[in-house]
């Protein structure tokens, strides 16, 4: 608790359980999850497939409802926070509407939230610039490459000042080079906007490179096995991935993942 401005809890989960009722019986997707995320943190979730990363993110955004335990967002329930437009959500696929231009896609949440015309245009220009897509506003999604589409979907999530950005494997479908670029840009963006970010990934280097906090999860039932606070500085050039500190954290994450695996 050195930096007091950075320590207000934004997301707080206490004893969270979430059970899906399926045709072949109940599936415990989350078991006894306790986690506090403070304002301005960059939190990565990592773990094997099916350990509940997506489910946890969806629960934060009120797309799923916990079976028991408490979950608060800015001191409110997730549903209330959603009505206060607290979330920008980015999925693995860009999910842009093919019948709208890139600018039209970014405007969509703004239209829904009732911003006026001039403000919509101003914000579209601003976030397009932020993700370096200025000049592509009039194009249709299918005229852009996969990486550009994904940047556009991030711009869409940034357009309306949500203070929490939830990203579920946003770069999972992209190649390594593009991914590196977007990782760098994501960090810059985070520094510039000061948003709280929840980020799901399968890549250890990506998690270590981006995060201030890494949450390691393990499956059946989905639970948290380790929470690692990163000692890396806020300023992170790509080369930092060759430093000793970086490799040590990566090692600890790998160990955590392995331990979760062996318990089965």
């Amino acid at each position: 608790m050195k930096d007091t401005t950075n320590s207000a809890p934004v997301i707080e989960a206490k004893g969270l359980n979430l059970v899906f009722q399926t045709a072949d019986g109940p599936v415990q997707a989350l078991k006894d999850v306790n986690l506090t995320i403070n304002r301005g943190e960059f939190v990565s979730f990592i773990g094997p497939s099916g350990c509940g990363k997506t489910t946890f993110l969806r629960a934060i955004a009120a797309l799923e409802h916990p079976t028991s335990g408490t979950l608060t967002v800015n001191g409110m329930t997730p549903d209330e926070a959603r009505r206060k437009r607290a979330y920008g959500y980015v999925f693995q696929a860009a999910g842009l509407y093919p019948w709208r231009t890139i600018a039209g896609n970014i405007k969509l949440p703004l239209e829904i939230m009732g911003f006026d015309r001039a403000e919509q245009d101003r914000r579209v220009a601003q976030v397009l610039d932020l993700v370096e897509l200025s000049g592509f506003g009039k194009k249709f999604p299918w005229q852009l490459s996969g990486g550009m589409q994904q940047r556009a979907s991030i711009a869409r999530a940034l357009a309306f000042d949500a203070d929490i950005l939830l990203m579920d494997e946003p770069f999972g479908a992209l190649d390594e080079i593009v991914r590196d670029r977007l990782n760098e840009e994501t960090l810059k963006l985070w520094a510039r906007t000061g948003k709280t970010i929840g980020f799901v990934t399968h890549s250890i280097p990506e998690a270590v490179y981006l995060s201030t906090k890494i949450v390691v999860m393990s499956p059946r039932p989905g639970r948290i096995t380790d929470v690692i606070d990163s000692p890396l500085p806020k300023e992170r050039p790509l080369e930092i991935r060759d430093s000793r500190e970086f490799i040590e954290i990566a090692h600890r994450v790998r160990e955590g993942l392995r331990a979760g695996h062996h318990e089965e």
Binding site: R82, R85, G88, A93, G95, L108, M113
Partner: peptide
């Protein structure tokens, strides 16, 4: 319409009518 797109609408707090007009009808 895809589930992901409906979920997006939900995270923006869109009403039933908004989802119908802006997503599902097109």
């Amino acid at each position: 319409s895809e589930r992901m797109q409906r979920d997006l609408m939900a995270t923006w707090g869109a009403s039933y009518l908004q989802t119908l007009v802006k997503l599902r009808l097109p």
